[in-house]
Amino acid sequence: MKKILKDFSRNQKEVVPILHRVQTEYGYIPPESLPEIAEHLKISESEIYGILTFYKAFSLVPRGKNIVTVCMGTACHVRGGPQILDEMERDLEIKSGRTTADGNFTLESVNCLGCCAIGPVVVVNGKYYSHISVQKVGKLLKEYKST
């Protein structure tokens, strides 16, 4: 944590950039990091808690090894995005926003990735998959199940 905080000034505007960095390093925001961030920025812990729970990007619990994001944008919606998410939930046996018990997958949805032309779109660990159909879901997840 100290090493991370060294890169940031003590101005409050750094709070979101710091949280981004912490999440990149640890995969989530460990609750025990909050006092240190608060001390660095000289703002209260509760304020940081308020900020990090306001923004969807941050998670206070560890996330899965593989992050599966299903796009729920309008273009993906009319091309069957909700059915893709349904199938993902069924296959992984978790609801969107949750992590599987073995910690292998976190399933998330996003409002729009801006790749509307090639929808429905699914992103796994930053890799984009275009024109996904319900049929392709099983095969796609299988690729990551063994890892």
């Binding site: 505007k13 900020i51 923004y55 969807k56 990007a57």
Partner: peptide
């Protein structure tokens, strides 16, 4: 350059400024 954190409302101008200042949008 400032990166957002996944809140649609931060596209509204006054929210966006709050977000840059390091507050809830």
């Amino acid at each position: 350059i400032v990166q957002g954190a996944g809140a649609f409302v931060s596209g509204e101008e006054t929210s966006l400024m709050a977000s840059i200042e390091g507050r809830r949008a």
